[in-house]
Each structure stands twice: as C-alpha cells, then as structure tokens.
Design a protein around this nucleic acid. Structure first.
Length: 406
DNA sequence: CACCGTATCTGAGAAGCCAC
DNA sequence: GTGGCTTCTCAGATACGGTG
C-alpha cells in the first residue's frame, strides 16, 4: 500500500495530537491512544510501509537536529503539510480520529427504508463497511469486518461477534453477498431496490460516523432525522409545516416515536400558527364549522398585523422541522436513480406489479415564503387555502397569514 | 386541533455459555 | 466456526393528562 494522500476535505484525518519529544506513551491515556492507533484500519495509512518508514526516520532523528526535513513539500497548506512538518520536527504524531467530524453520505429514502423494513441494524453495518472500505474495492474480508466491528478495543465496535454473525446472515442478499471469505458490498441502487425504494429523492446528508457507532436507538433516531435534514433544502422549504400524520405516512413511524427520535437526534421543531379573518367579520359559528374547535381569538395589542387592538381568528398549524445534519452534494444521484428505474422496470415485467407508484400525500403546495409567491399561486388557483409568512428572528414560533382562493 | 411530557409495559435485540 | 438455549437490557408503543 502506498502513502495515502491525507486531506482535510474528506474528513478522514481530522485531528492530530502532537506530543513533546520526551513524552513516551507511558500514561494510561497514551496507552489508550496507542491502542486506538494500533487497531485503526490499514487503509488509513497507519500500517502503510511508506508512512512507517517516515515515522521510523522521524523517531530515529529525535536525538539529532531536525535539519533533514527541508526537502519535504512546503507549499500545500493542509493536513498533509502539517503532518509532514510535524514529522520533520521529529515530533510523535498520534492520530485521534474524532468520528463526529468524519461523515458518510446517506440518502434519506434509503435510511427511512431501513427503518421501515427493520433493517437499521444491518444497514448501519453496511454503511460502516462502505466507509471502512476506502479503497473502493467493493469488498472487505469477513475477518476485517470482525476486527473492526466486534473487537472490544476497536473504536468501530458496534456488537459482539455472535451478533455480527446473525446480522451478516440477515443482510445477505440485501446489503452484501458472502463468498471466498469476503463480504461483497452491494451498490446503493441495488440496496435501494432491495429495500423497495423507487427513487432517491431529496438531497443526501452527511451523517457523522460517530452516530453509526453509537447505540442502535441513536442510529434509528438519526436515520429518521435524515428525512428532515434532506427536506430543509432552501429558505422556501425550510419553514414549511408538515403534519405528524403526513410524516407518519411517509416514514411509517407513529407520532410519539417521531418525537422521541427528534429529541434524541436534535431535530429542531417550530410551532406555527395561522392568522385568519377579523373576529367581527366572521361569526364564531361559521369559523368553528370551518376550522373545528382549534380556533382561538388572537388580539393584536401592538398592531403588528393591522390596526392596533384588532382581534383575529387564529389556529394552530402543523410544526416545521429543521434536521441536525449538513447536506452534501448530490454526487451520482441522477445516475443512481436511472439505475434504480432500470432495476424496477426489470422487476415489473412479472404479474401483479403496478407500473406507477402512488404520489406522496403532500403534493399540493400550500405554504409560501412570502406574500408575493402566495399571491402568484393564488391567481393560478394552486390550492383552496394558501398560507404565507415573513422572516422572523425568533425561530421558536412562526405566524402564517391565511389566504382563501375560492 | 396539534403538540408535548411522563409512566408503564412488552418484545426484540444483544451477548454469554456450551456442545457439536 | 456455527447454532441452540438462556438471560438481561433497552427500544418502541401506548395511555393519560396538560398546554396554547
């Protein structure tokens, strides 16, 4: 294996801890760090012959003045140059991989399908193995997988060997195929098709690897949170309300579980209220007939919504949600969706398959970022009821203005 | 109506032990 | 290395009451 290129962009070499020359790894924490280094995956370069040679040279040079390093590249201001300069100074470098800064690209429909089909445990193994297979060979040996995922000293440990055997059996044919002592990892479109995902919608998100190595409850919560993270794409859709019922229809998760996952994964929720007509313009009976018992009277003491002291009919709308993850580039999403379509077309040649999937339950657009867009939609008669909002500094609560188009 | 917090119960997951 | 058996933990569902 050659000397790997260490870059900050892919986040695989996030942190380095520089120890003084005289400090030998004798303390407990040092031993822990050494243990961490020893069980790091080989592809990360720490078992690289070239890198080992450099480390040995630097170790030997500790007793000598560090003048031999002048030939090392100086231009590239990156972790590579940082590493080189530290090596050149003869300092001992202990990589402390901080999995919270290392991320994997995850597609929300795939994560939700894992939850829906009860394959979150095997799915996270697949994601971890895809990450650990950085050579991109598409396979890892069973022994490697066992060492990384079950060794008690491994930072990638997620379960015992006994459980891993069960999981490997469960994921066979969906996430991987076994053969010649290797796990052949399936590509994203194949896995998506096996899980019943017809299209990879929304933007992919960057899921911290630390999430994948946490408890299964945390993994599940973040798989759910990818839905909100991939949905908060633009300023216009960021605050778009969505009912618990709709989320349940999409994710197949009951409301209480949604709340539990949101709390666990750090999804931010925002309450929304709609302001309707003035109280004296519509009777209580009429508004109750239209809106049910959820309607209440809102008095505008400060005159923020019109004449000071006016009272309006108001009601609560569904919440808005902001996911905890950063979005990443779409990558090969378009090509993968073509592959997925091909896979499903092949699968549809038999009997009893519908050629068209039902549309999602939230196709009629109802919420707009400002009044101009809402008025434009109003002229097109996009929906019977429209809501529009204005930018707010306080993110906990948002008011929406009601617009009737009939 | 839509949402939230807490308590409680149930069942699946995880892991240890051991024989083959 | 595999699989059966057992035990224990914890995730997930449900119920209930409360808020705006």
């Amino acid at each position: 294996m050659g000397l790997p290129v260490l870059t900050a962009e892919d986040g695989r070499f996030p942190d380095y801890v520089v120890l003084p020359h005289s400090q030998s790894p004798t303390t407990n924490s040092d031993r822990e760090i050494t243990a961490v280094i020893q069980q790091l995956p080989t592809h990360m370069g720490w078992e690289s012959a070239s890198l080992t040679a450099v480390l040995r040279r630097s170790a030997c040079s500790q007793s000598k003045p560090a003048h031999h390093s002048s030939h090392l590249p100086q231009k590239n201001i990156s972790n590579t140059s940082c590493l080189n300069s530290k090596l050149a100074k003869g300092e001992t470098i202990s990589p402390l991989p901080s999995p919270s800064t290392v991320t994997v690209r995850v597609y929300a429909p795939l994560a939700l399908a894992m939850l829906r089909t009860g394959q979150a445990t095997t799915g996270r193994i697949w994601l971890l193995l895809r990450y650990l297979d950085t050579d991109g060979r598409g396979w890892v040996t069973v022994e490697q997988a066992r060492n990384w995922l079950t060794d008690k000293t491994s930072i990638w440990r997620v379960c015992g060997w006994r459980q891993l055997r069960n999981l490997l059996r469960q994921g066979e044919g969906v996430f991987w195929h076994r053969g010649n002592g290797r796990l052949w990892l399936c590509a994203i479109p194949k896995v998506a098709a096996a899980l019943g995902v017809t299209q990879l919608t929304g933007r992919p998100i960057a899921l911290p690897v630390s999430v994948l190595t946490a408890g299964i409850g945390t993994v599940r919560a973040h798989f759910y949170a990818t839905f909100h993270s991939s949905r908060t794409a633009s300023q216009q859709t960021r605050h778009k309300p969505i009912a618990r019922e709709t989320i349940a229809a999409i994710t197949h998760l009951p409301e209480r579980t949604q709340r539990h996952y949101e709390h666990k994964a750090g999804v931010r929720t925002q309450r929304n209220f709609a302001i309707g007509k003035k109280v004296n313009s519509v009777s209580a009976h009429e508004i109750a007939w239209e809106r049910g018992t959820a309607v209440f009277e809102l008095k505008d003491f400060l005159g923020k919504h019109g004449q000071q002291g006016s009272t309006y009919w108001a009601w609560q709308l569904p919440n808005s949600y902001v996911g905890p993850h950063k979005q990443t580039g779409r990558g090969r999403q378009k090509r993968m969706n073509r592959e997925l379509a091909d896979l499903f077309m092949q699968g549809m040649t038999g009997n009893g398959r519908s050629a068209h999937t039902p549309p999602p339950p939230y196709t009629t657009r109802r919420y707009y970022a400002n009044g101009r867009l809402a008025a434009k939609a109003c002229t097109r008669r996009a929906a019977n009821e429209l809501y529009w909002t204005v930018p707010y500094k306080n993110g906990r609560l948002r008011l929406w203005y009601f617009l009737e188009t009939k």
